[in-house]
């Protein structure tokens, strides 16, 4: 049995969880096993069969409707024990980051986080994992019988398996010590870690008052906004937007860097982006070395042209 922990946002399964589910189904097929989607609390989202769930286990307990690591880790681990799960998979979101190691101790399972490949089963159970802050990768063999993997979001495709999974409800009693006092979510904006397109800007923008065009471009493209460390340190932009080695690590399909030179620490946080575009006045900026597309020019002249063309193409 291969199990996947499903996270929800506004009643729907998160895309990163669906990626994990399809990953699990592919692994289950290789092992002639079944995939189980584990939903803790709340309601069961609708699109799990299509993404690869053979079965759904809905764990119910009053404590599970809100996320707490201890509550959800207990629920997941109980299901894994009852169902004889050999491999537990989750997305490497903030929830996944905290749950994976806790579940691995409860299940006496070897745990690998930051996974970016399907397992190679030809000689053990070997997965590729990102390390050295995205400057390298390592192949890790998981030797234990039970395994817990967390996957870097946006590394795998969501499949369309068209399954119609059975839903079984299991009641697990959990005790919870963490009390939520206040939740502050950025409303209406695309969370950076989940964004497929990201428009990012740096000190080349000269001041916070010039961010209007960055936000406008992001808005037209349906992208999230990000920034470099100096910009966050100067309080031009909120710290939650800082991507790089000591900020957030992201792996969007498109990363547009405007007025960012591309210091090694910044690249560490964004170099896994699938397509990188760099706009900078300095042709020697190190960012151009890792870019797919580059424009050597002044952001204040280039960005309005991008906005204009994007508006035309989008019919806005």
């Amino acid at each position: 049995m291969i199990a996947v922990y499903i996270e929800r946002e506004n009643g729907r399964a998160k895309k990163s969880s669906l990626e994990a589910l399809s990953y699990a189904k592919n692994l289950a097929v290789k092992n002639s096993a079944q995939s189980i989607a584990i939903v803790a609390g709340g309601e069961v989202p609708s699109d799990l069969g299509d993404a690869g769930a053979d079965a759904i286990v809905h764990v119910t307990d009053g404590n599970l409707n809100e996320f707490t690591p201890e509550g959800h880790a207990t629920a997941i681990s109980e299901v894994c024990k009852q169902k004889g799960v050999t491999t537990l998979i989750m997305a490497g979101t903030y929830a996944g980051k905290i749950l994976a190691p806790i579940c691995s101790v409860k299940l006496k399972a070897g745990c690998v986080t930051g996974v970016v490949s399907e397992p190679d089963l030809s000689n053990g159970f070997v997965v590729r994992k990102s390390c050295f802050s995205n400057k390298a990768f390592t192949m890790v063999n998981v030797k234990s019988d039970r395994k817990v993997l967390s996957l870097i979001p946006n590394s795998f495709e969501v499949g369309s398996f068209g399954l119609t999974p059975s839903v079984e409800s299991i009641s697990v009693s959990t005790s919870v010590l963490t009390k939520s006092l206040e939740v502050d979510k950025v409303k209406g904006k695309i969370p950076l870690t989940e964004a497929e397109l990201v428009v990012s800007a740096g000190r080349g923008m000269k001041g916070p008052e010039n961010w209007g065009m960055i936000e406008e471009l992001a808005d037209i493209l349906g992208a999230a906004t990000a920034c470099s460390k100096p910009v966050a340190d100067l309080d031009w932009r909120p710290h939650g937007e800082h991507v790089g080695q000591t900020g957030i690590t992201i792996k969007p399909n498109l990363y547009i860097a405007i007025g960012i030179s591309g210091a090694i620490q910044h690249l560490a946080g964004v170099s896994s982006s699938k397509v990188i575009c760099v706009i900078n006045t300095d042709p020697e900026a190190p960012f151009f070395k890792v870019a797919d597309y580059g424009i050597v020019g002044d952001a204040f002249e280039v960005v309005p042209k991008l906005i204009e063309r994007a508006r035309q193409l989008k019919g806005l």
Binding site: A95, K179, L181, V183, V186
Partner: peptide, 9 residues
């Protein structure tokens, strides 16, 4: 947390 912050005790 994903998409924001949570104050907890």
């Amino acid at each position: 947390i994903d998409g924001g912050k949570e104050k907890v005790s």
